[in-house]
């Protein structure tokens, strides 16, 4: 470790000045204080603090009255939490599968040397600039049973037509999915397109010379070559899904029927800031952390495990 740092340290060209080690690069160290403070105090310190306090019975204010795993036992006995986890798993799997496949297919279409590429890209990506609140509210309006798609089709004469995902506990997650995909696939498409463009033109020429059909080149050659892009995309999308909150607040507020579309982030917020049951909020957020680590650690291991990065 110290050997690599030594080599990376910019060499001063003036004659060797005997200075104590810690004063070397002193401005750089001072400039990095905000980063160090953020990393240590907020990201590391804050996380540890919450994990530690999740073992207390804090209610209105944090207290150091440790009760072991009581909060976690209560958490996993609360039906609202169990529903939140199920919802998130379902939404997460569906969202990952659809954003990645749709994103990739769209990127392939965009990569066919088409005309008006910029126009198409602009249209597909603009929802990504909008907030989840705006996204949620627009789709809530489009899916409005009385005036939205259902209402329009019924007015055209098909009176038994039913398309009201947001008011049916069975389908509410699909409603969220329609809006979530609308917001996020453009972004994934751009990531994939950047990946496709990064592939050497010679690969394509070689495949053409060998007479491999285009679709087969994509499946057999291109996709395996884009493995890093896929993994990065999966990690970004997955860590976004675990945070899913605003969209649900805007579209359904967790309903219908009280908790048909609850998600963990909502549980955490409600227990921390509404129900004044901090211990539960801490325990729930610790579970969220755990789920992210399950996604993140294998990825970090795969990506940075062997080689030296940076």
């Amino acid at each position: 470790m110290s050997a690599t740092t030594e080599a990376a340290t910019p060499r001063t060209t003036s004659a060797a000045r005997p200075r104590p080690r810690w004063t070397r690069n002193i401005s750089a160290k001072i400039a990095a204080i905000p980063m160090i403070a953020t990393a240590l105090v907020i990201f590391l310190g804050g996380t540890i603090w919450t994990v530690v306090y999740s073992f207390t019975n804090s209610r209105l204010l944090p207290r150091t009255n440790f009760v072991g795993f009581d909060q976690y036992e209560r958490l996993w006995e609360t039906s609202r939490w169990l529903i939140s986890i199920q919802n998130l798993m379902f939404y997460g799997v569906m969202s990952l599968v659809f954003t990645v496949t749709m994103g990739f297919v769209l990127a392939v279409l965009m990569d066919q040397k088409i005309r008006f590429e910029d126009t198409f890209r602009t249209i597909m990506l603009y929802p990504f600039a909008l907030s989840f609140i705006v996204t949620g509210l627009v789709w809530q309006w489009i899916l409005n049973p009385q005036f939205g798609i259902q209402g329009v089709v019924r007015d055209m004469g098909w009176t038994s037509f039913t398309f009201d995902p947001l008011n049916n506990p069975q389908t509410v997650l699909y409603g969220l999915l329609i809006a979530g995909l609308w917001q996020g696939t453009g972004f994934v498409m751009c990531l994939m397109l950047a990946g496709l463009r990064g592939i050497d033109e010679d690969i394509w020429k070689a495949a053409r010379v060998d007479g491999i059909p285009t679709w087969k080149t994509y499946v057999v050659v291109i996709i395996p070559m884009m493995r890093p892009v896929f993994i990065t995309t999966l990690v970004i999308v997955a860590s976004g899904i675990i945070r899913l909150y605003d969209l649900v607040v805007a579209m359904t507020s967790g309903g219908p029927g009280g908790n048909a579309s609850q998600v963990p982030a909502m549980y955490v917020y409600d227990y921390m800031f509404q129900a004044q049951n901090l211990g539960q909020g801490f325990a729930a957020s610790t579970m969220m952390l755990l789920s992210v680590l399950i996604v993140l650690i294998p990825w970090a291991y795969l990506e940075f495990g062997g080689k030296k990065h940076g």
Partner: peptide, 16 residues
Amino acid sequence: ILIFGSFIPYQIMLYP
């Protein structure tokens, strides 16, 4: 740590 922090759910740092 910073990069890991960007993936950690914000919820865990809200109260601190």
